[in-house]
């Protein structure tokens, strides 16, 4: 009997939902806006798919799609992480 690799990926997916559930509930409400901007940045890891599409030689349709997707994902990655860092650096404790 061979288990389809899809099942393993599904297992990873479902366990990751649980991890996400517990991790996100522990995020302090004061940081919910940075949470959204950082999740934005990390979901742009979809760039790996775009890189594979833009990687081969030549210039076919897939490559053009890949290039545009790289650009869009890069906007998100840089924009998301930079704006998150900017926000987080503003949270300060009371000066004693």
């Amino acid at each position: 009997m061979v288990v389809d690799p899809f099942i393993f990926r599904l297992a990873i997916f479902i366990l990751a939902i649980f991890v996400g559930y517990y991790v996100v509930w522990s995020v302090t409400p004061a940081l919910h806006t940075p949470l959204m901007s950082v999740t934005n940045a990390i979901s742009s890891v979809i760039i790996v798919g775009a890189l594979i599409a833009a990687g081969p030689e030549g210039a076919d349709l897939a490559k053009i799609f890949g290039f545009v997707a790289i650009t869009l994902a890069a906007i998100n990655i840089f924009g998301g992480f930079v704006v998150t860092q900017r926000m987080l650096s503003m949270y300060k404790k009371k000066k004693k």
């Binding site: 990873i12 997916f13 990751a16 996400g20 996100v24 999740t39 790996v48």
Partner: peptide
């Protein structure tokens, strides 16, 4: 992102998609 992660068989994308998906759902 998770859906594309399944297509590309990429665990980073699947895990991240699940994290972000549940994060948005909780919010």
């Amino acid at each position: 992102a998770a859906g594309i992660g399944f297509t590309l068989e990429n665990t980073a994308l699947i895990i991240t998609g699940a994290l972000v998906g549940s994060s948005g759902a909780i919010l």
